[in-house]
């Protein structure tokens, strides 16, 4: 371990401040599992209050809309989600805790967004929803909501191992003009400030999330893209295998944390 004493940082415009200790001195209940801390524990009490009340949480607007879409027939097959899956409260319970999973022909990992679109194109014969559309974000959040409070529980062994390893490699790989890896912020420095931002463990259990900054709901892959842009790296496309593998790896890091979708974050 190296210790650095850097005065020029402040002049340079960035300071990694000391810990806010927010994450340490409170009983976080379900939001803390072992040393895993949900992003919830890094939020201010005002932001947490918005998440705590389902009515006050603006993400619920998108969830409401998705609840309606669940039973609306679309596509040439004349089906809705409900035609195959009946009531989401039963059929989707616990499903999101296991995603991403290997796809049908075992050639790639698919996350919830991709599974929804796979159902739309293959079963409903309907058009895929666009990434970050109100429809896809809403349905993803609605599906994940059915697992709310249940622990994240992804499979990383057997045929999934190579994808897990790829995701892990991505996490530790330096990239971009700033030559930084995910781990530099989220493993080495959570609880410290990068300028005015409190760095978190980068847990994925609350996505899609309503971000105050975005002023709307957004996906985990949008967050990845934002992180990548911040370190001046070329972001990957929404749903790119690199990001789905990373999603798998992040979920495995957050194994045991409860699904919090739709969370509210800064």
């Amino acid at each position: 371990m190296r210790k650095l004493y850097i005065a020029s940082l402040l002049i340079g415009g960035m300071a990694l401040g000391s810990t806010a200790s927010q994450a340490e001195d409170k009983d976080w209940g379900a939001y803390k599992v072992g040393d895993k801390l949900s992003g919830y524990t890094y939020a201010t009490k005002e932001t947490r209050a918005i998440q705590d009340d389902d009515f006050e949480n603006p993400a619920q607007i998108w969830v409401d809309q998705a609840e309606g879409n669940w039973s609306s027939v679309e596509g040439e097959a004349g089906k809705s989600c409900e035609s195959c899956h009946n009531a989401a409260s039963d059929s989707m319970k616990g499903v999101a805790t296991r995603y991403p999973v290997l796809n049908k022909n075992k050639a790639a990992m698919v996350n919830v967004e991709q599974q929804i679109n796979f159902c739309r194109t293959s079963q409903m014969k309907a058009k895929a929803w666009k990434w970050e559309s109100a429809e896809l974000l809403g349905m993803t959040a609605f599906v994940k909501l059915q697992s709310r409070g249940m622990p994240v529980n992804v499979k990383i062994d057997g045929p999934v191992t190579p994808y897990y390893e790829k995701g892990k490699a991505f996490y530790y790989e330096r990239r971009g003009q700033l030559d930084m890896a995910c781990k530099h912020c989220h493993e080495d420095n959570p609880g410290k400030y990068a300028r005015a931002n409190l760095l978190s463990q980068g847990q994925s259990n609350g996505f899609p999330t309503y971000r105050l900054k975005w002023q709307k709901i957004g996906s985990l892959h949008r967050r990845f893209r934002g992180c990548n842009k911040n370190i001046r790296a070329q972001p990957f496309a929404y749903g790119a295998p690199e990001y789905v593998n990373l999603e798998l790896y992040l979920n495995s890091r957050g194994q045991g944390l409860p699904v919090e979708t739709p969370s509210v974050r800064n």
């Binding site: 371990m1 850097i6 005065a7 940082l9 960035m14 300071a15 080495d188 001046r232």
Partner: peptide, 23 residues
């Protein structure tokens, strides 16, 4: 002067980060 303890980000990284003005 602020004392900063970091485990594995190199000094160069931080200076780059600071200078880049991305934030």
């Amino acid at each position: 002067v602020q004392r900063i303890e970091m485990s594995s980000v190199s000094r160069r990284d931080i200076l780059k980060f600071a200078g880049a003005g991305a934030c």
